[in-house]
């Protein structure tokens, strides 16, 4: 019984039927879909690079502006940290730079990771 079932299953599964004929333009259809994916990839990668570099440049601009604004009058960007003036408002202004710098570094790392990932994908 078991051997018969084995034999019948083998025959049934391996028999060729007329429905097993592929349409003549099968490869063409697949290649059409594949080329569409390829085009989508091209479109996807260009704005991503522009967006990241745009963001980096914008942040650079903001950082430089902030440094100029927060720095001492006369355009000097030297930072003097005086612990005796903790109550002074200028302390807050000076230390504002720390989170900004951390943020910029963080964005650099994030942008770098994004670009690396995208390059791998391509």
């Amino acid at each position: 019984m078991n051997n018969n079932l084995d034999k019948d299953l083998q025959e049934a599964i391996n028999e060729e039927s007329s429905s097993q004929e592929l349409s003549s333009n099968f490869t063409f259809k697949v290649m059409d879909k594949v080329e569409q994916i390829d085009l989508k990839r091209e479109i996807k990668k260009s704005p991503l690079v522009n967006w990241v570099s745009g963001l980096i440049f914008t942040l650079f601009g903001i950082l430089i502006t902030l440094i100029l604004l927060l720095g001492e009058r006369g355009g000097s960007i030297a930072i003097n940290i005086d612990f005796t003036t903790l109550q002074d408002r200028s302390f807050v202004k000076t230390f504002m730079l720390v989170p900004i710098i951390v943020l910029v570094v963080g964005i650099f790392v994030f942008a770098d990771t994004l670009l690396r990932k995208r390059n791998k994908g391509i």
Partner: peptide
């Protein structure tokens, strides 16, 4: 060179379709 993929499609389409047809049962 995306076009090279058509060579692989041509080579394996028969068997891939055969597996799909035998599992799904609809052309």
């Amino acid at each position: 060179d995306t076009r090279e993929y058509s060579i692989l499609v041509e080579q394996y389409k028969g068997m891939v379709y055969s597996i799909c047809f035998k599992i799904i049962g609809n052309q």
